[in-house]
Design a protein around this nucleic acid. Structure first.
Lengths: 250, 250
DNA sequence: AAATATCGTTCGCCGACTGTGAACGACGGT
DNA sequence: ACCGTCGTTCACAGTCGGCGAACGATATTT
């Protein structure tokens, strides 16, 4: 259950397990948490009280649910990651390309949408801020994956490549082939591999040390990107990603 | 430092202290955290490793900073609190009133902005999503404060009423008077008491049990609200707050 | 209405874990 | 070459985390 084998504080792991269960169930009582974690009620109770006192959980009658603290802390994290200038770059790209644009940050195996901009005439948003995207099944994820150090990439590809649609690449070798193409063009594509009837292209944002910081992606309905002038759109995305690399001297 | 005196897990408090320091400093190393908390480096090290293994902290060279997990968890909390229908109500109010509208949720002594909508022609946003507002110095906060149970309200008013501008009410008695007026009109006002040159009106959103769930606020530049037809705008806000009470059968 | 089940909460005990302080190698500045 | 500081490791000792039993209250069942 714990990822590393280094030094650790067991009681903290327990508390984080409690938080995870409560978040997964969107609210739970002491007994339910205890049975899911296979722990005593008395022990869980102490953790729940501690987390409530600190605002990480809120007591709602007889159940506990994650507190607003996550929201305020979460926006702080996001704001530090995405300065105003970065938002402008995304806004500009969205305006000139006429499609929804999302900014993705990669961290500890997770690719999260930290900012997005949709043209006012776009009906629904396929991906929204706060989403965590599968690395192998999205353009944004593949853009990151292609530029990860080889060992880290292998670890991910050897993991579970879940199928989200019947177009999802679930074979590690197939994904590796696709990543080869991504590196050649500095551009990743997704043809309904995560959400059916949604296509996307994405370019990586690479830090000064060569490690991918994230990616910037354009999403649209099928045929709109590819049937249009893909090359022109692609070059806009790539140049936006390069300008982000300059701003993002993190 | 801990709020309650009930049962608690000390090791968890320590970890949360570590998280707090790292968040406050926007990144810190083991030694700095240890000295701020007056603890041993070795002990802090174990906590930092544990939190990193779980994704709550990320190792950035020699310093640690809060992880993206807060952002993804935070948006989950927000999305559960603010269903799509609630967003529509806020959007509609903003469109018809022509000013920025914010939705505030109150929880465990904190009033946080969970959703906001600004007209496209508005230059800057005085308050943004994720902000935590002072209860005594904002219209949104006073709307909540006025409808809290008396003992909870007293506890807050006896605390620190920090001055944010020279218009901020810092005297508990003065705030109590203002809250009396709020209850009479079901409407709170703020005349540059939190941010200079920003005025706001807000109406409370009260749950079925009588406990305030939060509030809905309209912000604008000075004179724009009050010199216009305040009464008409106020009634729009109040009716929006009542429609939220129906939707928000939490 | 009585009986039963299940809830959250309290409490004492014991073994295991947390936290300390010292020591170490690696850097970086002087 | 020296000193200061960094993150990391380790063994020890006292503390405290977690278990399990018991309690009253509430909900459900018979």
């Amino acid at each position: 259950m714990n990822r590393s084998d280094g030094p650790s504080v067991k009681a903290v792991h327990t508390s984080l397990d409690v938080l995870r269960v409560v978040a997964d169930l969107d609210g739970a009582g002491v007994s339910e948490i205890a049975s899911r974690l296979d722990r005593s009620k008395g022990g869980v109770y102490k953790h729940v009280r501690t987390l409530t006192d600190r605002g990480y959980l809120v007591e709602d009658g007889t159940t506990y649910r994650p507190g607003l603290r996550y929201w305020t802390l979460g926006t702080d994290v996001r704001d530090r990651l995405v300065p105003e200038q970065v938002k402008s770059t995304v806004d500009d790209l969205s305006a000139s390309i006429g499609h929804a644009v999302a900014l993705i940050v990669y961290e500890a195996g997770i690719a999260a949408v930290v900012y997005s901009r949709v043209p006012s005439d776009t009906a629904i948003q396929p991906i929204v801020e706060g989403d965590s995207l599968p690395l192998h099944a999205t353009a944004a994820g593949k853009a990151v994956l292609a530029y990860l150090p080889e060992d880290e990439r292998e670890t991910i590809l050897d993991g579970d490549l879940a199928a989200h649609t019947n177009a999802t690449l679930t074979d590690p070798a197939a994904v590796k082939d696709a990543l080869e193409t991504v590196r050649e063009r500095r551009l990743a594509e997704d043809h309904g591999e995560y959400v059916a009837d949604v296509e996307a292209i994405a370019a990586p944002v690479i830090g000064a040390n060569g490690y991918p910081f994230g990616s910037i992606a354009v999403t649209s309905r099928p045929e709109e990107l590819l049937d249009g002038n893909l090359e022109a759109d692609a070059s806009l995305v790539v140049s936006a990603s390069k300008s982000l690399e300059n701003v993002w001297a993190d």
